[in-house]
Design a protein around this nucleic acid. Structure first.
Length: 483
DNA sequence: TCTGGGGTCCTTCCACCT
DNA sequence: TCTGAGGTGGAAGGACCC
């Protein structure tokens, strides 16, 4: 079985913000170089699509609501959904926050077509009850076909591929339907006169290997024949950890480039440590002003999770890169991972030197963002006002922030504008999309309030009991602030 | 049109070793 | 001793996915 949540980020935002329901919603980066992560079905009517530059989306749908992603919210909802899947089978393979394969046979959750369909339908009902969102389900004998089926089922549906009908279903479809056929391979095949899956199968294995190389050719030929015996793999181990930033304006200053690389190295190590990992190969990624991308890597003698070591290596790699003309993106990654930390002696010595030089605290090298930051109010993020209660930022600028006061369970709310430094206003955690399902006591249905002594001081304490196991994201949350 | 961020896998090239 | 074949590991780039 393959489950795919429908327009996940955008749907979560609509569930969270009653005034956006039924409206065009676009979630993605809002900067000058942002792209669309998800568009609601209402926005897709205007031609807005994932991966489209935001500027283009704004031209197509100028009246849509544009929001930055709130991964903490999506992660919480995702955990709820994955929990439902795990109740069906121990073999669950998440592909992302909103997608997963489930092996229903593994746990005897389904044994024939009817039982599988019942399981799929019940799952969709449960997902809606628990999260308020819809998901589409594909049922088939293989991962590839289940995925194609869930795509066919969208939105809010279920499609089962009956055994024996696989090739008839697949044959007329465009080659781009198959996993692993993207723009480049699609073009390549089209130039060879191959546009449908049937034509792919007719071309024969030798021809495909000649066109696409060994691994890809063999793999694609099998897919074209609907042969796919890849198992559902529950636990995949991480192979690399990386962070990257695209800058609103190209960076020309070499000193600034070096500073950014060090920051990225620190952030990368923060993530690495957070996952309890260390790695041997340091990778620097540079995207230049003309969008050409290059990587430089260096393999150490042993794995490290020392920020100073990674910073130094990344700095050396940067020395070998020409950045005249400016860079639009920088990234630092670590691969060759190990789940232990055994420093190479030289590297460790170098690291200790560097730490001394920079007077850096050895723990938690996480980047301390802007030092004395003024308060920022990102579009779409939750806030709480001491008088008006819970709401979300509709927009801000020129010293003003506009807030719409509503909650997932309330009717569409009213808009009010405040000064950005209004002391009565503070950032808040997202509320659950569905008012607590199996909640034992105290039903206080009021839009805001309830328990808590969520006084101003520590915004950490305001995390309500919403998402059962929401340990509020190891990262992605607010800056840590730990001197 | 003007292209994010985080990944995975594959291919090619080269150096080195046997 | 020279040459070549083949394996391996690292570096770099490309394609793809969500």
């Amino acid at each position: 079985m393959h489950l795919d949540m429908d327009a996940f980020y955008a749907s979560a935002e609509q569930a969270s913000k009653p005034s956006l329901r039924g409206k065009a919603v676009v979630v993605g980066g809002l900067g000058p170089r942002g792209v669309v992560a998800t568009a609601s079905y209402e926005a897709r009517v205007f031609g807005v699509r994932s991966a489209m530059p935001m500027a283009q989306a704004r031209r197509l749908a100028p009246n849509a609501a544009y929001l930055v992603p709130r991964f903490a919210l999506y992660r919480s909802v995702s955990e709820q959904v994955m929990g439902l899947l795990h109740a069906l089978s121990p073999l669950v393979e998440p592909l992302s926050l909103d997608e997963a394969f489930v092996d229903l046979e593994a746990a005897g959750a389904a044994w024939d077509r009817d039982s599988a369909r019942r399981v799929g339908e019940r799952l969709r009902v449960e997902i809606r009850a628990v999260t308020g969102l819809t998901g589409s389900v594909g049922l088939a004998a293989s991962k590839m076909l289940a995925k194609i089926a869930s795509e066919e089922a969208k939105p809010d549906g279920l499609v089962m591929v009956e055994p024996g009908t696989e090739r008839a279903l697949l044959g007329p479809m465009p080659v781009r339907t198959l996993p692993g056929v993207g723009p480049a391979t699609g073009d390549h095949l089209r130039r060879a006169g191959i546009t449908s899956v049937d034509e792919l199968a007719e071309a024969g294995e030798d021809e495909l290997v000649r066109l696409l190389g060994k691994a890809h050719g063999h793999g694609l030929y099998a897919m074209a024949l609907a042969l796919d015996d890849r198992p559902v793999v529950a636990e995949r181990e991480t192979k690399s950890v990386s962070v990257e930033d695209t800058y609103d304006v190209d960076i020309h200053d070499r000193v600034r480039v070096a500073t950014e690389v060090r920051r990225l190295a620190d952030r990368c190590v923060g993530r690495l440590r957070g996952a309890g990992l260390s790695g041997r190969t340091i990778v620097l990624k540079v995207r230049r002003y003309d969008f050409s991308t290059l990587t430089r890597s260096e393999t150490l003698r042993g794995p490290t999770d020392d920020p100073a070591v990674v910073r130094e290596a990344a700095g050396r790699l940067l020395d070998s890169v020409d950045t005249t003309g400016g860079v639009r993106l920088l990234g630092v990654g670590v691969s060759g991972l190990a789940d232990y930390t055994q420093e190479d002696l030289f590297a460790q010595a170098a690291g200790e030197r560097a730490v001394l030089e920079t007077e850096e605290e050895p723990e938690a090298p996480v980047a301390r963002e802007e030092p004395a930051q003024e308060r920022r109010w990102p579009s779409g993020h939750d806030v709480r006002h001491s008088v008006f209660g819970h709401g979300w930022v509709q927009g801000s600028g020129l010293g003003r922030v506009t807030v719409r006061f509503e909650t997932p369970g309330s009717p569409p709310g009213r808009v009010r504008t405040f000064r950005t430094d209004d002391p009565e206003l503070e950032p808040a955690e997202p509320l659950p999309l569905v008012s607590a399902v199996p909640l034992p006591p105290s039903g206080s249905r009021d839009p805001d309030e309830g328990e808590d002594e969520g006084d101003a001081g520590g915004q950490a304490s305001s995390a309500p009991a919403i998402f059962p196991k929401s340990r509020s994201g190891k990262e992605g949350g607010a800056a840590p602030s730990s001197p």
